[in-house]
Protein backbone atom coordinates (compact mmCIF):
# COMPACT_ATOMS: atom_id res chain seq x y z
CA UNK A 1 0.00 0.00 0.00
CA UNK A 2 1.40 3.37 -0.97
CA UNK A 3 1.60 6.31 1.41
CA UNK A 4 -0.82 9.06 0.41
CA UNK A 5 -0.65 11.36 3.42
CA UNK A 6 2.56 12.28 5.17
CA UNK A 7 2.48 14.55 8.22
CA UNK A 8 5.84 15.65 9.64
CA UNK A 9 6.74 17.59 12.79
CA UNK A 10 3.34 19.25 12.90
CA UNK A 11 2.85 21.80 15.62
CA UNK A 12 0.03 24.15 16.55
CA UNK A 13 0.05 26.67 19.35
CA UNK A 14 -2.60 29.11 20.52
CA UNK A 15 -0.56 31.63 22.49
CA UNK A 16 1.03 29.65 25.33
CA UNK A 17 -1.23 26.64 24.76
CA UNK A 18 0.31 23.84 22.73
CA UNK A 19 -2.56 22.13 20.92
CA UNK A 20 -0.40 19.86 18.76
CA UNK A 21 3.25 18.93 19.12
CA UNK A 22 5.66 16.90 16.98
CA UNK A 23 2.99 15.01 15.11
CA UNK A 24 4.41 12.55 12.60
CA UNK A 25 2.01 10.28 10.75
CA UNK A 26 2.02 8.37 7.47
CA UNK A 27 -1.27 7.18 6.06
CA UNK A 28 -1.40 4.56 3.35
CA UNK A 29 -4.14 3.96 0.84
CA UNK A 30 -7.18 1.92 1.98
CA UNK A 31 -6.27 2.14 5.67
CA UNK A 32 -8.91 2.57 8.34
CA UNK A 33 -7.50 4.50 11.25
CA UNK A 34 -9.07 5.41 14.57
CA UNK A 35 -8.02 8.60 16.31
CA UNK A 36 -8.53 8.37 20.04
CA UNK A 37 -7.77 10.55 23.03
CA UNK A 38 -9.41 12.42 25.86
CA UNK A 39 -11.16 15.76 25.29
CA UNK A 40 -8.60 18.44 24.42
CA UNK A 41 -5.96 15.86 23.48
CA UNK A 42 -5.53 17.38 19.99
CA UNK A 43 -7.56 14.99 17.82
CA UNK A 44 -9.81 17.57 16.21
CA UNK A 45 -6.91 20.03 15.96
CA UNK A 46 -5.06 17.39 13.93
CA UNK A 47 -8.06 16.83 11.62
CA UNK A 48 -8.59 20.58 11.33
CA UNK A 49 -4.97 21.09 10.28
CA UNK A 50 -5.00 18.32 7.69
CA UNK A 51 -8.25 19.61 6.18
CA UNK A 52 -7.14 23.24 6.11
CA UNK A 53 -9.48 24.56 8.79
CA UNK A 54 -6.50 25.53 10.95
CA UNK A 55 -3.07 26.59 9.76
CA UNK A 56 -0.28 24.77 11.64
CA UNK A 57 2.34 26.84 13.42
CA UNK A 58 5.05 24.67 11.87
CA UNK A 59 5.56 21.33 10.19
CA UNK A 60 4.62 19.75 6.88
CA UNK A 61 1.55 18.04 5.47
CA UNK A 62 1.99 16.29 2.15
CA UNK A 63 -0.86 14.71 0.29
CA UNK A 64 -0.02 12.65 -2.78
CA UNK A 65 3.41 14.28 -2.74
CA UNK A 66 2.02 17.82 -2.70
CA UNK A 67 2.49 20.25 0.16
CA UNK A 68 -1.03 21.24 1.24
CA UNK A 69 -0.23 23.27 4.31
CA UNK A 70 -1.04 26.65 2.75
CA UNK A 71 -4.09 25.53 0.83
CA UNK A 72 -7.62 26.61 1.85
CA UNK A 73 -10.13 23.86 2.75
CA UNK A 74 -11.82 23.94 -0.67
CA UNK A 75 -8.54 23.22 -2.50
CA UNK A 76 -7.67 20.41 -0.11
CA UNK A 77 -11.15 18.99 -0.66
CA UNK A 78 -10.71 19.19 -4.43
CA UNK A 79 -7.37 17.36 -4.12
CA UNK A 80 -9.09 14.46 -2.38
CA UNK A 81 -9.38 14.94 1.39
CA UNK A 82 -12.94 15.39 2.61
CA UNK A 83 -14.34 15.53 6.08
CA UNK A 84 -17.46 15.35 8.18
CA UNK A 85 -18.06 17.24 11.41
CA UNK A 86 -18.98 16.45 14.97
CA UNK A 87 -21.92 18.82 14.54
CA UNK A 88 -23.28 17.88 11.09
CA UNK A 89 -22.73 20.65 8.55
CA UNK A 90 -25.72 20.39 6.25
CA UNK A 91 -28.15 22.82 4.64
CA UNK A 92 -30.72 22.78 7.42
CA UNK A 93 -33.75 24.25 5.67
CA UNK A 94 -33.41 22.01 2.62
CA UNK A 95 -34.52 18.43 2.15
CA UNK A 96 -32.11 15.49 2.22
CA UNK A 97 -32.42 15.20 -1.57
CA UNK A 98 -31.72 18.91 -2.08
CA UNK A 99 -28.69 18.74 0.21
CA UNK A 100 -27.16 15.99 -1.88
CA UNK A 101 -28.27 17.59 -5.14
CA UNK A 102 -26.37 20.72 -4.13
CA UNK A 103 -23.34 18.65 -3.17
CA UNK A 104 -23.35 16.83 -6.51
CA UNK A 105 -23.82 20.08 -8.42
CA UNK A 106 -20.85 21.73 -6.68
CA UNK A 107 -18.67 18.72 -7.33
CA UNK A 108 -19.72 18.18 -10.96
CA UNK A 109 -20.20 21.72 -12.26
CA UNK A 110 -17.08 23.78 -12.72
CA UNK A 111 -16.47 27.00 -14.67
CA UNK A 112 -19.32 27.89 -17.02
CA UNK A 113 -21.12 24.66 -16.16
CA UNK A 114 -22.08 26.44 -12.93
CA UNK A 115 -24.59 28.25 -15.14
CA UNK A 116 -26.31 25.06 -16.22
CA UNK A 117 -29.55 23.96 -14.54
CA UNK A 118 -28.90 22.30 -11.20
CA UNK A 119 -31.51 19.63 -11.81
CA UNK A 120 -31.24 16.92 -14.42
CA UNK A 121 -32.63 13.39 -14.57
CA UNK A 122 -29.13 11.89 -14.59
CA UNK A 123 -28.05 13.87 -11.55
CA UNK A 124 -31.27 13.07 -9.71
CA UNK A 125 -30.68 9.35 -10.26
CA UNK A 126 -27.09 9.67 -9.00
CA UNK A 127 -28.40 11.42 -5.90
CA UNK A 128 -30.99 8.69 -5.37
CA UNK A 129 -28.30 6.00 -5.69
CA UNK A 130 -26.21 7.84 -3.12
CA UNK A 131 -29.20 8.06 -0.77
CA UNK A 132 -29.59 4.30 -1.09
CA UNK A 133 -25.89 3.66 -0.45
CA UNK A 134 -26.21 5.51 2.86
CA UNK A 135 -29.65 4.04 3.52
CA UNK A 136 -31.36 7.38 3.97
CA UNK A 137 -33.72 7.11 1.00
CA UNK A 138 -36.71 6.99 3.37
CA UNK A 139 -35.84 10.52 4.42
CA UNK A 140 -35.43 11.78 0.85
CA UNK A 141 -38.01 14.56 1.16
CA UNK A 142 -37.54 15.35 4.83
CA UNK A 143 -36.09 18.74 5.72
CA UNK A 144 -32.64 18.36 7.30
CA UNK A 145 -33.57 20.26 10.45
CA UNK A 146 -36.26 17.67 11.24
CA UNK A 147 -33.99 14.63 10.89
CA UNK A 148 -33.00 12.40 13.80
CA UNK A 149 -29.38 12.93 14.84
CA UNK A 150 -28.17 9.65 13.35
CA UNK A 151 -29.68 10.39 9.95
CA UNK A 152 -28.29 13.91 9.99
CA UNK A 153 -24.84 12.45 10.70
CA UNK A 154 -25.27 10.07 7.79
CA UNK A 155 -26.31 12.95 5.55
CA UNK A 156 -23.23 14.95 6.58
CA UNK A 157 -20.96 12.00 5.82
CA UNK A 158 -22.81 11.22 2.59
CA UNK A 159 -22.26 14.83 1.47
CA UNK A 160 -18.57 14.64 2.31
CA UNK A 161 -18.30 11.43 0.29
CA UNK A 162 -19.91 12.83 -2.86
CA UNK A 163 -16.52 13.84 -4.25
CA UNK A 164 -15.27 10.24 -3.86
CA UNK A 165 -12.32 11.44 -1.79
CA UNK A 166 -9.09 9.48 -1.41
CA UNK A 167 -9.19 10.23 2.32
CA UNK A 168 -12.28 10.87 4.41
CA UNK A 169 -11.85 12.20 7.92
CA UNK A 170 -14.84 11.75 10.23
CA UNK A 171 -15.10 13.74 13.42
CA UNK A 172 -16.90 11.57 15.98
CA UNK A 173 -19.40 9.91 13.66
CA UNK A 174 -21.26 8.26 16.55
CA UNK A 175 -21.39 11.14 19.03
CA UNK A 176 -24.94 11.86 20.16
CA UNK A 177 -26.11 8.50 18.81
CA UNK A 178 -27.86 5.95 21.01
CA UNK A 179 -26.07 2.69 21.94
CA UNK A 180 -28.50 0.68 19.81
CA UNK A 181 -27.95 2.86 16.76
CA UNK A 182 -24.18 3.25 16.76
CA UNK A 183 -23.19 -0.12 15.29
CA UNK A 184 -25.83 -0.12 12.52
CA UNK A 185 -24.79 3.46 11.71
CA UNK A 186 -21.11 2.54 11.52
CA UNK A 187 -21.93 -0.53 9.43
CA UNK A 188 -23.66 1.66 6.88
CA UNK A 189 -20.82 4.19 6.79
CA UNK A 190 -18.01 1.65 6.56
CA UNK A 191 -19.78 -0.44 3.94
CA UNK A 192 -20.46 2.62 1.77
CA UNK A 193 -16.87 3.81 2.07
CA UNK A 194 -15.51 0.35 1.37
CA UNK A 195 -17.36 0.36 -1.94
CA UNK A 196 -15.54 3.58 -2.81
CA UNK A 197 -12.11 2.30 -1.65
CA UNK A 198 -11.81 5.33 0.60
CA UNK A 199 -9.09 5.66 3.21
CA UNK A 200 -10.84 6.51 6.46
CA UNK A 201 -9.60 8.27 9.57
CA UNK A 202 -12.12 8.85 12.28
CA UNK A 203 -12.11 10.37 15.71
CA UNK A 204 -13.87 8.17 18.22
CA UNK A 205 -14.37 8.00 21.96
CA UNK A 206 -16.17 4.68 21.91
CA UNK A 207 -13.55 1.91 22.16
CA UNK A 208 -16.01 -0.77 21.07
CA UNK A 209 -16.35 1.07 17.78
CA UNK A 210 -12.58 1.40 17.53
CA UNK A 211 -12.03 -2.30 18.20
CA UNK A 212 -14.61 -3.33 15.68
CA UNK A 213 -13.88 -1.06 12.74
CA UNK A 214 -10.26 0.08 12.67
CA UNK A 215 -6.99 -1.66 11.95
CA UNK A 216 -4.74 1.05 13.30
CA UNK A 217 -4.99 3.52 16.16
CA UNK A 218 -3.49 6.96 16.69
CA UNK A 219 -3.74 7.84 20.37
CA UNK A 220 -3.41 11.50 21.32
CA UNK A 221 -2.50 12.93 24.67
CA UNK A 222 -1.81 16.61 25.35
CA UNK A 223 -1.29 17.39 21.68
CA UNK A 224 1.09 14.50 21.04
CA UNK A 225 0.67 11.08 19.51
CA UNK A 226 1.54 8.71 22.34
CA UNK A 227 0.82 5.57 20.39
CA UNK A 228 0.57 4.70 16.70
CA UNK A 229 0.03 0.97 16.36
CA UNK A 230 -2.33 -1.75 15.15
CA UNK A 231 -5.55 -1.70 17.19
CA UNK A 232 -4.86 -4.82 19.23
CA UNK A 233 -1.45 -3.51 20.27
CA UNK A 234 -2.62 0.03 20.83
CA UNK A 235 -5.44 -0.92 23.21
CA UNK A 236 -3.04 -2.73 25.54
CA UNK A 237 -0.33 -0.11 25.28
CA UNK A 238 0.63 1.25 28.69
CA UNK A 239 0.32 4.91 27.75
CA UNK A 240 -3.02 4.37 26.01
CA UNK A 241 -4.31 2.55 29.12
CA UNK A 242 -3.11 5.31 31.38
CA UNK A 243 -3.99 8.41 29.37
CA UNK A 244 -6.79 7.44 27.00
CA UNK A 245 -8.95 4.41 27.71
CA UNK A 246 -8.37 4.06 31.45
CA UNK A 247 -7.64 0.92 33.49
CA UNK A 248 -11.32 0.15 33.99
CA UNK A 249 -12.01 -0.30 30.32
CA UNK A 250 -8.80 -2.32 30.05
CA UNK A 251 -9.96 -4.70 32.82
CA UNK A 252 -13.42 -5.03 31.21
CA UNK A 253 -11.72 -5.91 27.97
CA UNK A 254 -9.60 -8.61 29.60
CA UNK A 255 -12.64 -10.04 31.37
CA UNK A 256 -14.62 -10.05 28.12
CA UNK A 257 -11.77 -11.77 26.30
CA UNK A 258 -11.57 -14.33 29.12
CA UNK A 259 -15.30 -15.03 28.95
CA UNK A 260 -15.15 -15.44 25.19
CA UNK A 261 -12.19 -17.88 25.54
CA UNK A 262 -14.05 -19.79 28.28
CA UNK A 263 -17.16 -20.03 26.17
CA UNK A 264 -15.12 -21.30 23.29
Amino acid sequence: MSVILEVSDLQKTFGAVVAAKDINVSVSEHETIGIIGANGAGKTTFVNMVTGYLKPTSGRIQFLGQDIIHLPPRDITCLGISRSFQVPQVFMSETVFENLLMAYAIVEDTGLAMLSPIMSEERASRVDAHLKRYQIEDYRDAVASTLPQGVRKLLDIAMAAVRSPRILMLDEPTSGISVEEKFPLMDIIMEALKQEDTTVLFIEHDMEIVERYVARVLAFYQGEIVCDAPTEEALVDEKVREFVIGEEYHRTRIERAGTETGNA
Binding site: T51, P72, R74, D75, S93, A160
Partner: peptide, 16 residues
Protein backbone atom coordinates in the same frame (compact mmCIF):
# COMPACT_ATOMS: atom_id res chain seq x y z
CA UNK B 1 -29.10 28.99 -0.56
CA UNK B 2 -25.97 27.00 0.14
CA UNK B 3 -23.97 30.05 1.20
CA UNK B 4 -26.81 31.38 3.34
CA UNK B 5 -27.32 28.04 5.05
CA UNK B 6 -23.81 26.78 5.60
CA UNK B 7 -20.62 28.34 4.25
CA UNK B 8 -18.47 25.73 5.94
CA UNK B 9 -20.13 22.93 4.01
CA UNK B 10 -19.78 24.88 0.75
CA UNK B 11 -16.02 25.21 1.36
CA UNK B 12 -15.75 21.52 2.27
CA UNK B 13 -17.58 20.55 -0.88
CA UNK B 14 -14.78 22.30 -2.73
CA UNK B 15 -16.18 25.71 -3.68
CA UNK B 16 -15.40 29.23 -2.53
Amino acid sequence: MAVRENEIRVEYLGYS
